[in-house]
Design a protein around this nucleic acid. Structure first.
Length: 608
RNA sequence: GCCGACGUAGCUCAAUUGGCAGAGCAAUGCUUUUGUAAAGCAUAGGUUAUGGGUUCGAGUCCCAUCGUCGGCUCCA
């Protein structure tokens, strides 16, 4: 049962999970006969099914308890072993409506299919369906287009696990009913299930919130506020290294650093048009002397005002204004998560003001910069997504021609650098289409990081101009871009990607000098001073502990190098080098270690 | 924001049906001077998230608020 080259929705794994979802729903109906069924598709790591259990005694929606979940799982395993064929059939719309008469969510799905509004995944369909597809095993029948495995027993009872429960809105709409979702997973074999569960455990171990505390990188204090991380000294070193790296790359590429305030008048955001879009995710405006100020939710308007601060000639363009600009967005409390989802964050932001003729080349330059940044970080597994507007949504501003121009500019640029991308409707910024860079970490989780956006709208709203060769005023085009995305999110992902064992150039402490006894401390400090003077981040562990304990501590801090110093090293003017990979490299002269380390820092290699 | 779980020392966790709040690590002090992942002893550390309530008595039961976590929605 291997299908290496088959897309997931056609794979055996997908069929196993889809069938598992049906059998789970069957099991739920054993324990909750009155449950109403919503939908239950396979997803990337397993499957889920949504149920409406009606109201509990306290008037709130009834939910699944942990015991319920255990019982459902036990019943599900029994049902899997009782083996039954999955039978496919089709019903006319009328037959289906009668058949699912007591299942209101299924009825809604059938009606949408019949009227050609939405398919079962909530995506628009053009063609009204004449009939619907049903899969049935034993007495359990579900509206479903398949595919499934032929027999329930092909979902192995020991390779299935129910993972967790949670709330979920019907059709993903927060204004609709809240349903109870059960997530589960299934694999072809129990070994593969065990591997998956193992990976989940690993992910927990490398959680950036856990490592952030253990490695003293950041701290979130409820008294400061939710989603407002405090960068501890070691985290600040890490972040500053990233900023310095990008600053340098940007200076080399003609960017100009600027600095702007953290607040701005409400009128600024009304002019830009940001305000209505961000109204619900704003800290309340600050009222001072009959004026209203906003904590800035984005840097664009400030940079635009810098562009406007003087007359611009075509000779000045492109103008590339760059700032690590901190912005504040009042995200809903349930969305906050460590560093990856916060309320105050710093965007490695830049706005490029270009002539229409320059757009293509500048866009390519930005794409190449982002690729350079990712590759330097050792992020090789990433893909691009072209986010375009959704014509059925009122979320997007500007004339259709602007959107077409922007989208084709991105397509042309991506094509000419040979970058593959997927197009997704409804993923654009309100002012224009964007190309997002989505990184897949070592645990195969995807993160949206870098972004480039083409914007014809804000130049118009702010009346931006430059004087062309013809002496006439022309309108520039804007490119918004951020390779890291946000320093907070990026560092959060970096922590998990490297499991806290950062490449040498990013490690907050690059080497810990470990004197074996007190009499070695002066020499240890001398060594540390030498290495510090050479630009390395070195500390001395002169505490009253045994060497073994000091090594253990440095190891747990994931410090790349431990430099052990005893009588032999002192006499030889050497250090005994141990890496965090537990490799004992033996003694080497201080100068040799220094050039080794400096070489690695300069190359930004991830390995020691 | 919505659904659910949870909140005990800096961290990880105990505390029988409601009955004297405790341990390990970390911190501090003393002893020890050590060769590649945890030396020994001692000391200190708490309004059990906050505020109400029930009770002779609340870490434990009830309510509210704040916060965290898992989902949903949203997003850099």
């Amino acid at each position: 049962m291997s299908n290496e080259n088959v897309p997931y929705p056609e794979s055996d794994l997908y069929k196993i999970r889809h069938t598992a979802a049906h059998v789970m729903a069957e099991a739920v109906l054993v324990h909750f006969p009155e449950a109403k069924l919503a939908i239950g598709p396979p997803v990337e790591d397993g499957f889920y099914y949504d149920f409406d259990l009606g109201l509990a005694e306290n008037g709130k929606p009834r939910t699944f308890s942990e015991e319920d979940l255990a019982q459902i799982e036990a019943t599900m395993k029994k049902l899997l072993n009782k083996n039954a064929p999955l039978e496919h059939s089709t019903l006319s719309i009328d037959e289906a409506l009668a058949f699912f008469g007591d299942q209101p969510y299924k009825v809604e799905l059938i009606e949408d299919l019949a009227q050609g509004r939405l398919d079962e995944n909530g995506n628009p369909t053009a063609v009204p369906a004449q009939e619907v597809s049903i899969y049935k095993h034993r007495e359990f029948a579900d509206l479903c287009r398949g595919p499934h495995v032929p027999y329930t027993k092909q979902v192995r009872h020991n390779a299935v696990k129910l993972i967790r429960t949670g709330g979920a809105y019907w059709r993903g709409d927060e204004h609709k009913a809240q349903l109870q979702r059960i997530y589960g997973t299934a694999f072809p074999s129990k070994e593969e299930l065990a591997d998956f569960l193992q990976r989940l455990e690993e992910a927990k171990e490398r959680d950036h919130r856990k490592l952030g505390r253990e490695l003293e990188l950041f701290h979130i204090s409820p008294l400061v506020g939710s989603g407002l991380p405090l960068w501890l000294p070691r985290g600040a070193i890490l972040r500053e290294n990233l900023e310095q790296f990008l600053r340098k790359a940007q200076l080399e590429r003609g960017y100009q650093p600027v600095i702007t305030p953290h607040i701005g008048k409400l009128d600024l955001y009304i002019t830009s048009g940001h305000y209505p879009y961000y109204k619900d995710s704003q800290y309340t405006p600050i009222d001072v002397d009959d004026e209203q100020f906003l904590l800035k939710p984005m840097n664009c308007p400030h940079h635009i005002e810098i562009y406007k601060s003087k007359m611009r000639s075509y000779r000045d363009l492109p103008v590339r204004l760059a700032e690590f600009g901190t912005v504040y967005r009042y995200e809903q409390s349930g969305e906050l998560n460590g560093l990856t989802r916060v309320r105050g964050f710093t965007v490695d932001d830049s706005h490029l003001f270009v002539t229409p003729d320059q757009l293509h080349e500048e866009f390519i330059n930005v794409v190449n910069l982002i690729k350079y940044v990712f590759e330097t970080m050792g992020f090789h597994d990433f893909r691009a997504r072209l986010g375009i507007n959704d014509p059925n949504s009122d979320k997007y501003a500007g004339a259709p021609e602007m959107w077409e121009k922007g989208i084709s500019a991105i397509r042309e640029a991506a094509d000419s650098v040979g970058m593959n991308y997927v197009v997704e409707e409804g993923e654009a910024a309100f002012y224009g289409p964007k190309l997002d860079f989505i990184f897949r970490d070592v645990l195969k989780r995807e993160w949206q990081l870098g972004t480039v956006q083409v914007d014809f709208l804000l130049p118009e709203r702010f009346g931006l101009e430059y004087i062309g060769e013809d002496g006439q005023a022309h309108r520039p085009v804007m490119i918004h871009r951020a390779p890291f995305g946000s320093m907070e999110r990026f560092v959060g992902i970096l922590i998990e990607h490297f499991n806290g064992a950062f490449p040498l150039w990013l490690s907050p402490v690059q080497a810990m000098v470990i004197p074996i006894t007190d009499r070695h401390v002066p020499y240890a400090q001398e060594v540390a001073a030498t290495l510090k003077a050479a630009g390395l981040r070195v500390e001395v562990d002169d505490g009253n502990e045994r060497m073994n304990k000091k090594i253990r501590n440095a190891q747990m801090q994931k410090i790349p190098y431990m430099l052990v110093i005893g009588d032999k090293e002192m006499e030889a003017g050497a250090v005994a080098v141990r890496t965090r990979e537990e490799e004992d490299r033996g003694a080497m002269p201080v100068a040799e270690f220094q050039s080794l380390a400096l070489g690695l820092v300069a190359s930004r290699e991830a390995t020691l």
